[in-house]
Design a protein around this nucleic acid. Structure first.
Lengths: 131, 131
DNA sequence: CTTTGTGCAAAGCCTTTGCAATTTT
DNA sequence: AAAATTGCAAAGGCTTTGCACAAAG
């Protein structure tokens, strides 16, 4: 089945661009606020719909905070994980071939197929440790 | 400061017991339903409050589904991760000293202190693969 | 011109909270 | 009796949806 055409709209460009301009995770509501502050008249629902769309197409990473709020971040394309500062939110992308191998092997050992995984690392970054 | 006394009530016992009797994750609403089915008259709010309490005391593990719903599971105490079947939810606890070491090392390399992490592995279990 | 996308407001869900009644200690 | 806990219903917060209008191809 051919996938339906995706129209390039002002709003979609704006959302994608907003994420391009920040290094860390932003919630839908934050993205909305960023855009409105910048003069856009984009609706909150559109932001939600666009972010979801971007996530479906692997254009952004998604994480869920412990409070249940989803946050989005532009991603480099390759598979990686995030090291997030608990205090200020500063994020570093990290890769770990060893972890990839280990998760796959462990899953298959237990008879699980079609393996995927999520891994987030939390800590306090140097700047925040130093007060 | 001495921590305030926790009273052992019928409801709290019921919630803890409910989780003892299942091997995988259950949401607050599911636990509530389980208990009501069993004849309990426990309120939904109490289930939420108790589950939160158990989580605060590290008596249960918590995960957030991609949809944002929190689920709870009795935990063995030692640090471990979960291998979850995407199809039926069957869960296996797995341990991986290598991963523990890797996450800590990676975080510290980047100057992050007080490191913790979350790792969930997803796949399709044998039973589900075999239709 | 047809199809897809947008905005708004309403509706949905999961979760939390206020408060009077109840249960523990 | 004092203090903690419960139940219910109301309120909250994030996210999704219905629908008429606007925009894209």
């Amino acid at each position: 089945m051919p996938e339906q055409p995706l129209r390039l709209t002002r709003q979609r460009q704006a959302v994608a661009e907003a994420l391009e301009n920040v290094p860390d995770f932003r919630s839908a509501q934050e993205v909305h606020e960023m855009l409105r502050s910048g003069g856009s008249t984009i609706g909150l629902a559109t932001v939600y719909r666009t972010l979801q769309l971007l996530a479906d197409h692997d254009q952004v990473d998604v994480i869920r905070s412990a409070e249940g709020e989803a946050s989005y971040r532009r991603c480099s394309g390759s598979h990686h994980h995030h090291l997030v500062c608990r205090s200020c939110g500063a994020t570093v992308e990290v890769e770990g071939p060893a972890v990839e191998r280990w998760t796959r092997a462990t899953a298959e050992e237990h008879g699980y197929a079609d393996v995927s995984h999520t891994l987030e690392i939390f800590g306090v970054c140097r700047r925040c440790s130093d007060h």
